[in-house]
Amino acid sequence: MISLLLATLTQSLTLIPLALGINLSYTLLRATDMTIDGSFVLGAGVFAQLVTMGISPIIAFLVALSCGAVAGAFTAFLQNGGKVDPLLAGILTSFILYSVNMAIMGRPNINLLSTPTLFSGAFAHSTTLGWFSVALVVGLLVVAFYTLLQSRLGLCLRAFGDNPALLSRQGYNVTYLRVTGFSLNNLLAAASGAITAQIIGYADIGMGVGMTLIGIGAIVLGQHIILPFIKKHYLRAGSELLAGFIGIALYFFILNGLLRFNINPIYLKLLLGILLALFLRTATRKASFS
């Protein structure tokens, strides 16, 4: 059981920034941003390519984050100009990102096993220290993100998701807010991608497939477990954050748990899907009463 929890914890840790990003797009901005599938790979790919070229991992990490932000800005830009639906804009961007990622990486798979990364030093010392350093980087991102959510910008982003037309009539620059929101969200996805690449030892062109879905599933799951307990609305940002953590952890708990049943893996995704559907169903039933 302890090994199961440990496996859950380490796996969730790398995807926490992604969960934050999806929390931002799905809960605050109220948009299903499929760009994440692409920007996750973009973050991993840019980071892998840069460190392979011998650039310092810290700089590579920061550049990877910025690239994610640019991808998000592009999705926002698509929505601004042609009034493309956010879902469609995201799919379009991640479609384009496929080629961009290939161009940046130059090959479909970049190996990081013998390349110094942000965490390689710590992992060489001991696994515990390694995971501690990962937790540190993720923690920094979480704190930065939480501070942002609590600021006026966070309020504006939430208002944008609630009612962009009213926000615009109140004199706010909606375009700016949309770009900021989508950039941040994809920056976090790219961060998750870059961290994941360092943990699993490579960046791969196909590693982002389904990430948005896992993220949204986890967020919704987490929220419906935790939000009923939160009565005070000023605790909202914090509880949403917590919901993201819990959701992601639960997803991996279930995944790792199912593996332990020695279930034929052909049915694993079916079971995982049914479990998620069960949770989501209870979630929607709750929502229809409130």
Binding site: R152, L155, C156, R158, A159, G161, D162, N163, A165, L166, L167, R169, Q170, G171, Y172, H233, Y234
Partner: peptide, 29 residues
């Protein structure tokens, strides 16, 4: 500037207020 000079209220609350924000947050905006 226009938003500063002109304010609209309609019959529908969602044209006037952010429904999923608190009273205080609406004020802050």
């Amino acid at each position: 500037t226009r938003a500063h000079c002109i304010h609209t209220l309609t019959q529908s609350a969602q044209d006037n207020l952010f429904l999923d924000l608190t009273i205080f947050e609406n004020y802050q905006l």
